[in-house]
Each structure stands twice: as structure tokens, then as C-alpha cells.
Simulated assay, not measured.
Amino acid sequence: MTIKTILGYEIAPGVTPEEYEEWLFDVHAPDLLANPYLDRIVFNKVLRPVRQASGATADVPVGYTFYRIAEMHYADETAYENYLAWFRENPIPAERGPAGRTDFKFYVVTESTEVTR
């Protein structure tokens, strides 16, 4: 079973996309990946919203907008719990963290099931 945290966010007001991208890839991603229980991060930059699902089978309401939706992958629930414990022992300094840079819209823990062709 794969466990993921999935989070959607906007860039905080006052931060330019260029500043955000530099911080994200040069500072934050390396800080997160220092945790041995995190397998990988997938950063999905949102290009545009979708208004219809599966060939017009359903209208999708206009809702939140997102700059990015990110996925953080863990081997299992135990790895995720160890990830949290590791950061309690090794906190990211506030000046390097997302506060003031990332405006979170949602952040959830999920169990993933992949369907492929």
C-alpha cells in the first residue's frame, strides 16, 4: 500500500513565482528529502482548470484555483508516521519553511490505488 500526502496551494501574496520556484527547488525540496522516510515528491504545476469530466459526462463547478498540487510518497503508513517523528526531532527552521510563502488550500493523507492500461 502506498501512502501519499496530497496538497493543493497558491503562492502567498507578496511572493513572486520566481522567488517561490527558487525557494521550492533550492531550499524546501532538499529540506524535505533529507527525511529518510519520504520516498519522493511530485510537483504538479496547474496549467488550467477543467470544466467537464469524462467527455462532458459531468460539469465541474468553478472552485478553488491552485498554483500547484503536490504529492509526497511514503512506502506505507508506518513510513509516514516515521516521517512525522523524524521532523519532530529534526525540525525545518521557520525561515526555511513554507509559512509566508505557501497558501495551502488542502493537505490530506491518502491511500493510493493505481489503475493502468
Results as ranks from 00 to 15, higher is better:
residue 102 T to V: 15
residue 48 R to N: 07
residue 98 P to K: 09
residue 100 G to W: 07
residue 66 F to I: 03
residue 62 V to Y: 09
residue 98 P to F: 11
residue 39 D to T: 13
residue 4 K to V: 06
residue 58 A to I: 00
residue 28 H to M: 12
residue 68 R to G: 07
residue 67 Y to Q: 05
residue 18 E to K: 08
residue 10 E to P: 00
residue 35 N to T: 05
residue 71 E to M: 05
residue 5 T to V: 10
residue 37 Y to M: 03
residue 78 T to H: 13
residue 20 Y to Q: 01
residue 111 E to F: 01
residue 68 R to S: 15
residue 75 A to V: 11
residue 59 D to E: 14
residue 23 W to F: 02
residue 21 E to S: 14
residue 59 D to C: 02
residue 42 V to S: 13
residue 74 Y to Q: 07
residue 100 G to S: 04
residue 34 A to Q: 11
residue 15 V to T: 14
residue 100 G to R: 08
residue 43 F to V: 15
residue 54 S to H: 14
residue 105 K to N: 06
residue 117 R to V: 08
residue 112 S to K: 06
residue 23 W to I: 01
residue 9 Y to G: 00
residue 43 F to C: 08
residue 89 E to M: 10
residue 25 F to H: 14
residue 111 E to P: 03
residue 27 V to L: 00
residue 105 K to C: 02
residue 67 Y to W: 13
residue 100 G to L: 09
residue 40 R to F: 01
residue 99 A to M: 04
residue 48 R to C: 10
residue 24 L to F: 15
residue 34 A to M: 02
residue 48 R to S: 15
residue 59 D to Y: 03
residue 24 L to K: 11
residue 97 G to Y: 07
residue 99 A to Q: 13
residue 75 A to I: 07
residue 78 T to G: 14
residue 111 E to L: 09
residue 91 P to R: 01
residue 96 R to M: 03
residue 103 D to Q: 14
residue 74 Y to C: 06
residue 57 T to N: 12
residue 48 R to T: 15
residue 35 N to C: 15
residue 114 E to Y: 11
residue 103 D to R: 15
residue 59 D to G: 02
residue 33 L to F: 07
residue 90 N to M: 13
residue 75 A to P: 08
residue 10 E to A: 12
residue 14 G to A: 08
residue 89 E to Q: 14
residue 83 Y to N: 12
residue 69 I to P: 00
residue 60 V to Y: 00
residue 72 M to T: 05
residue 70 A to I: 00
residue 108 V to Q: 05
residue 57 T to I: 06
residue 1 M to Q: 06
residue 19 E to W: 00
residue 53 A to Q: 10
residue 30 P to W: 12
residue 90 N to L: 08
residue 43 F to M: 11
residue 91 P to Q: 03
residue 44 N to V: 03
residue 47 L to Q: 10
residue 97 G to E: 06
residue 83 Y to R: 01
residue 38 L to G: 03
residue 49 P to H: 05
residue 5 T to H: 03
residue 62 V to D: 14
residue 114 E to Q: 13
residue 96 R to Y: 02
residue 14 G to C: 09
residue 66 F to A: 09
residue 87 F to I: 02
residue 110 T to R: 08
residue 56 A to G: 08
residue 89 E to W: 00
residue 66 F to N: 00
residue 104 F to R: 13
residue 31 D to R: 15
residue 99 A to I: 13
residue 91 P to N: 00
residue 85 A to R: 15
residue 73 H to S: 12
residue 51 R to E: 10
residue 61 P to I: 05
residue 13 P to H: 02
residue 30 P to Y: 14
residue 52 Q to K: 14
residue 4 K to T: 11
residue 84 L to S: 07
residue 49 P to V: 03
residue 104 F to S: 04
residue 57 T to Y: 12
residue 71 E to S: 08
residue 83 Y to Q: 05
residue 3 I to F: 10
residue 81 E to C: 05
residue 86 W to E: 10
residue 94 A to Q: 14
residue 33 L to N: 03
residue 39 D to N: 11
residue 46 V to I: 12
residue 68 R to D: 04
residue 55 G to S: 03
residue 21 E to C: 03
residue 45 K to Q: 12
residue 21 E to V: 08
residue 86 W to K: 05
residue 109 V to M: 13
residue 100 G to E: 09
residue 30 P to A: 12
residue 86 W to Q: 06
residue 90 N to T: 08
residue 2 T to K: 10
residue 93 P to Q: 09
residue 93 P to I: 03
residue 33 L to V: 02
residue 68 R to M: 11
residue 30 P to T: 12
